[in-house]
Structure formats: structure tokens, C-alpha cells
Design a protein around this nucleic acid. Structure first.
Lengths: 133, 133
DNA sequence: TCGATATTTTGAGTAATGTTGAATTATGAA
DNA sequence: TTCATAATTCAACATTACTCAAAATATCGA
């Protein structure tokens, strides 16, 4: 990912209303949510919502698929992870030992995935995974 | 971290020029970089730079410390990790198994910290750390 | 104190962004 | 075909954001 691309994605997320939309879609999962339901959930005017969906869409963060008269929007996790990789890169290439707080949240996220995958010893593995500072 | 706070931080990073500044400071480490040197590195006008440093500063992403007539600016890693934690949270609370690409970059980042800390078997541990999809 | 250096603040001009109601397009059902 | 529903596009407006030169502030050395 290039820096201007990253700036574009960040800018798409930089408005509270759009960030709320994106988070809703991340939580909702790959099935997506109808535009109308999104509008209701974040209490937004229809045209405002449409404009904001368009911005998120152009940034590659979400995608829409038509089903009847509804359009379902879903988060693109790959794009999100590209952004996070871009943001973390500098830390790795620079002075990694400084980035521990950042690394710790990454580790916590990773353990959350394992917990989900394995369904066992949730708390213990989360603690064990944490890097000590 | 609240959503409006997150939107604010994202908005501070959402301009290519500011993102370049922030990345420079992340790479530079806790010692920071003189404002003048930043201006030279990103080839920015002095007042433009000052305005942008101010935005990053208000977002809590950097902080300045005066040393003689120079002011050194340094990245605040804790703030950055707060943001990343905020962005990853939804994934954990929603449908974690979907977030694997995202989790993988987190794991890679974590292993990069371990590599730095332990200085051994760099490639093997990075591969082992990766979650299989 | 005076001059030089480093940075910020101010003020102005320009560009970009966000919001909204009204009109439009697309789909499905009677 | 005609009507109702779902969503987008359009056009206008208000607001905010960006950049820059010039002036102001702060610090240091002579």
C-alpha cells in the first residue's frame, strides 16, 4: 500500500459518521447490511448516507451488492488489514522495541482469533500471549 | 477511546503530508526530530509544517519539547496503539473468524517485536506465528 | 543589547468537504 | 402498466481545511 492510498483510506474513516458506518459493517460480518437499515442504525439522512457509503466504497473499505431493491453493504477486511499493516510497518522498520504498547494490542487481537478458533482457556491464553514490557 | 476521539486521530493522519510527518517521527524514535529537519525531510513550507504539527499534536499523536531554539517532535506510540486497539475491537466483538487477514498482520507485527527482543531464528518464528486460514 | 536562527502566529485567499431536499433511477408487486 | 419502495444523483449552500507570505515570538551567541 502506498502512502497516498493510505491517506485516502484514513480520510474515508476520518468522519465520525462514516467511522460509525464502517464499524457497524465490520460487526455485521460478510453478509452486510441494507443501506436503509444502516441509515436507521446511525440515524442519517438518506442522501447523506449514500454520499458517505460512496466515499467508503471508493476507498475500498466496503462494497455493495444489490439484492432486489435493497443494496447490502459489507466491510472489506482485507483492505482494513492492508491499512493496519501499513501503519505498523514503520514501527517494525524503525525501533521495534519502542512499539511494545502497539505490539501488545496486536497480540491481544491475535489471541482473540485463537480463542474463537479453539474455544478454550480464553483468559489464560490471552495473558500468555501478552508481551511483557 | 471514544468514537469521536478516534475520528479526530484518523482525521489528523488523513492528509498525505501529515501522514508522512508522523511516519518519519515513528521511524525516528523517541528522541524526536527538529521541526526544521522535518520540514526539510518532507519538503514543506515552514508555516504549513507548523500548522500540520499542531494538528498532529492536538490529536495526541506527537509531542514537542523545546531544546534551545529548536523544538523536537516525537511520536506518541501509546496514542497510536490506542487507535489501533479501537479499530480492531469491532473485529473481536463481531465475527473474529472473518478478521483473519487482519489478525495475521497483527501476529506478524508481534513477531517482529520478538525478533528484535530475542535476535534469533527470525524467519522461522515469523512463519510459526502466522495463523493459518 | 543586538543580530541571527528556529519556530509559530496571523490573515487572506483558495480549495475541498459535508449536508440536505428534490428529482431520478431501479426493482418488485398488484 | 401502474404504483410503491429503495437507493442514488443533482444542485445549492454552508462550513471547514489547506497553504503561504509576512509579521511576531523565543532563544542563543557575540
Amino acid at each position: 500500500m502506498k502512502i497516498n492510498d493510505a491517506a485516502n483510506v484514513l480520510s474515508a474513516l476520518a468522519l465520525e459518521g462514516r467511522l460509525a458506518i464502517f464499524r457497524l459493517l465490520v460487526k455485521a460480518g460478510p453478509g452486510g447490511v441494507k443501506a436503509g437499515d444502516i441509515a436507521h442504525a446511525v440515524s442519517a439522512n438518506a442522501s447523506t448516507l449514500s454520499a458517505n457509503l460512496n466515499v467508503l466504497s471508493h476507498a475500498g473499505l466496503i462494497e455493495g451488492r444489490r439484492d432486489g431493491r435493497a443494496i447490502y453493504y459489507a466491510a472489506r477486511y482485507d483492505r482494513m488489514s492492508d491499512l493496519l499493516a501499513f501503519l505498523m510497518d514503520d514501527c517494525c522498520n524503525g525501533t521495534p522495541e519502542i512499539c511494545l504498547p502497539l505490539i501488545n494490542i496486536a497480540t491481544r487481537a491475535a489471541s482473540c482469533a485463537h480463542d474463537q478458533a479453539e474455544h478454550e482457556e480464553t483468559t489464560r491464553s490471552a495473558q500468555a500471549a501478552s508481551v511483557q514490557a
